[in-house]
Design a protein around this nucleic acid. Sequence first.
DNA 1: TATGAATGAGATTTCATTCAT
DNA 2: CATGAATGAAATCTCATTCAT
Lengths: 208, 208, 208, 208
Amino acid sequence: MTDKINNSESREKLIECAKREFLEKGFAKASLRKITGDAGLTTGAVYFFFGDKNGLFDGVVGSALQKLMNVIETHFTQDTEEDFLAYKQQYGDHDEFAKQLVDVIYDNLDEMTILLKGSAGSKYEHFIDALIDRMDKVYIKMAERFAAVMPGKRVNKKMLHWLCHVQINAFLHMIEHEPDKESALGFICPVMDMLVKAWIDFALEDDK
Amino acid sequence: MTDKINNSESREKLIECAKREFLEKGFAKASLRKITGDAGLTTGAVYFFFGDKNGLFDGVVGSALQKLMNVIETHFTQDTEEDFLAYKQQYGDHDEFAKQLVDVIYDNLDEMTILLKGSAGSKYEHFIDALIDRMDKVYIKMAERFAAVMPGKRVNKKMLHWLCHVQINAFLHMIEHEPDKESALGFICPVMDMLVKAWIDFALEDDK
Amino acid sequence: MTDKINNSESREKLIECAKREFLEKGFAKASLRKITGDAGLTTGAVYFFFGDKNGLFDGVVGSALQKLMNVIETHFTQDTEEDFLAYKQQYGDHDEFAKQLVDVIYDNLDEMTILLKGSAGSKYEHFIDALIDRMDKVYIKMAERFAAVMPGKRVNKKMLHWLCHVQINAFLHMIEHEPDKESALGFICPVMDMLVKAWIDFALEDDK
Amino acid sequence: MTDKINNSESREKLIECAKREFLEKGFAKASLRKITGDAGLTTGAVYFFFGDKNGLFDGVVGSALQKLMNVIETHFTQDTEEDFLAYKQQYGDHDEFAKQLVDVIYDNLDEMTILLKGSAGSKYEHFIDALIDRMDKVYIKMAERFAAVMPGKRVNKKMLHWLCHVQINAFLHMIEHEPDKESALGFICPVMDMLVKAWIDFALEDDK
DNA sequence: TATGAATGAGATTTCATTCAT
DNA sequence: CATGAATGAAATCTCATTCAT
C-alpha cells in the first residue's frame, strides 16, 4: 500500500545502489557520491528523496527492520505471558519462532546483513544493543517466575545476559555462513535447542 | 628487547595518547591530530616513529597481541598433540588455559579492548577472523581423532566452527563486563565448562 | 485591484508562510522548501505565482511598502513646497506625520520588520538607503531655502545627512521596542521634537 | 610580542585576503575557497592556521576588537566613578574619549568596518548588542546619581537606551562616511556635543 | 629528532532554480 | 494550477600524509 507512494524509478535505483554500497563499506564509509553516481544521479537527489544519509539508510533497511521487530515482539509478548515450565517443554515453539525469524531474515538478507554488520555511525548503530536489552528483560521475567517455584534458587542475571548475546550471535553467525533458508534452519535449530538446555542449566544459581 | 630501540620519551607519550584515542573512537575514527596534540607533538612525529597510522596502531597493540598469541599458540600446540579423550576429562586444563588467557588479557586490558572492539579499518581488523580460523583447524584435528574411534560418527564442522565463535565471544563479553581478573574467572570458567560439554555433545554428527 | 488576479488560496498561504519565515530568518537565510512545505505546496508553486524568491519577497512586503511610501511621498511633496520657517513652527504637523507613519507601520508590522531587518540579499536590501537619499534631497532643499535668508550661513549637508539616519533609526528602534501604536507614539513624538530642534541647531554652519 | 608567534607568510596572506573578502561580502557570504584561492593556498590551510571559519574571522578582527574594547572599558570605568554633574561640564573629556575612539577605529578601519557591518553569522554577530547593553548599564548608573539630586525626577530608561543606539550609530555613520581621522573628528565632536545635550534634556522625566 | 606548513581528495549538506507533465 | 523530480554549484570541513628544514 504505502509502497505505492514514493516509488519513483530513481528512488528505487538509489535504494538499490545504496544497498550495494552499504553492504560493501558499511554506513560510515559509504560514499553518497558513489551511490548517486552509480544511480546516474547527483547527491542532491538523496536529499530530495530521503532528507539525509541516515534517511537513505532508513530507506534501505527500514521496512525489513520493522518486519523483523514485528516477529520478535509478537514472540516476546507471548513469552512473558507463558509459563516458564511450559516454555521449556514446548520445543516445537522454538522451532516455530526460529522458522519465522529465518523467514524474515532470508527474505531480507541484504538488509539484515547491513543492519547487523554495517550500521555503525547510523541511527541504527545501537539496534543490537537495544535488542539485547529487550531480550534481557523478557528472559529475566521468565527466569524469575521459574525461580519462584525453585526453593533456594535465584536468577543468575549475568549468565542470562550472556546467553542473550550468544543467541543473537548465533543469528549473526547464521547470516554470515548459511546461504539459504534450509541450511539456515539446519544450523539454527540445534543451536536453539542447545541454548534452551543451557538456559535451564545456567539461568539459576544457588541463593547466596 | 626490541623495546630498547626507539624508546624515546616522545614515542612512549605517543603510544599512551594513541591508546586513549583508539580506545575511545576506534582506529578508523581516531584523529592523528588529536593524538599528537595531546602528546604535545605534531603529526609528523607519528610518521617518524611509526611510519603511518597503522604503524602507530601496531605500536599500541602489537606487543600485547604477541603475548596473547604466545599463550594461545602454546596451548594449541599442546592440544593437537594430546588425545581428545584425555582432553575432555582434564577439566583442570581448561581452567589453567583460561587462567593464562585472563592473565594476559587483564594485564593488557586497554590493548585487548582496542584490538577486539576498535580495530576496524586497521591492519588487524581481521585478527579475530584469523584467530577463529586457527582455532577451527585445531579443533577439527582434535575432533577427527575423536571421531576416528567412534564408529558411524563424523565431525560436524559447522557446529565446531560456531563453537569457536561462541568461545571467542565469551572472552569479548568478559572483557566488556568483568572489571578484574577475579570476577573474570568467575564468569569465564563456568562458561568454558559449558562449552566443553557442548563440544562433546555437538562436535560429532551421525555419518549420513 | 491587482489583487483580484492571482489571488488563489495557495498564493495567500504562500505569502502567509513566507512572512513567518522571512520574519524569522531574513530573506537570505529563508528556505523556499520550508515555506512551501509549511504551505502544503512545493517549491514550483513559488515560481508559478511569483517568478522567483525575490518575487515572493515582493508579494510579502510589496503592498505594505507601497502604502508606506505613499505616506512619505505625500509628506515630502508638501514639505518641499512649504516654507522652512513655517515648517519649524508647525510642531503639530510633525506629530500628524508621525501619527500617519505609526499608523501605516503598525498596521503592517510584520512586513515592516521584514523590510527593515530582514531584506539583506533581496532586491529591497537598499530600500533604506534609497529612503535616506530621498529624505536627504528634501531636507537639503528645505535647508537651502532657510539658508537663503540667513546671511553668512550655508547648509551643513553632512549633519543633515546624519540627522536623516537618526530619524530613520528612531523608527527602526520604535518598531523593535514598542509593541503598539500608543506606546510607539509615546516614544516617537518626543524623539521627533528633539530631532526638529537638532535640525534647527545643526542644519546650518558658518559660511567659510 | 605575541605577534611574533604564528606570523608565517601564508598566515598573513590568508588574513589579508580574508579581510578583503569579509569586507566585500560579510562573514556569512564570504567564501573560504575564494579567500584561500586568492592567497594561493587550499582551504585546509585555514583549518591548519585558524581552526575554522570563525577562527579566521577572529584572526582578522580579533586584535583590533580588543584594542577598541580596551579604550571603551577604560572610559566606562572612569565614568561610573565620576560624578554626573562633573561629567556634563567636562566637554573636553568627551572630545578626549572621541579622539581615542577615532584613533583606534581609523587605525583599524577595515577591521572595524567588518566588525560593524559584516559580522552577521560569526561569533561576533552580537557584538554591538553587547556593547549597547554595556553602555546602557553605565549610563543608567550615571543618570541615577544625577536623578538622586533632582527632586521629582526619575531616569527615563527608554530614552536613555535610545540615546545609546544613536551614539553607536553615529560611529557607524562616521566610519561609513568619513575617510580619515581629521574629518571623522570634525563629524563626531559636534555630534557628541549634541548627544550630551540631549542626554541632559531627556535622560530624566517627571516622577509619575 | 621532530616540526610546521600545506596538500588534495574526500566527505555531507543546502538551495534556488528548472521543467516536463 | 501545481507537482515532483532533479540539477549543479556551492558551501564548510576533515584528515592522513608529505617534506623541507
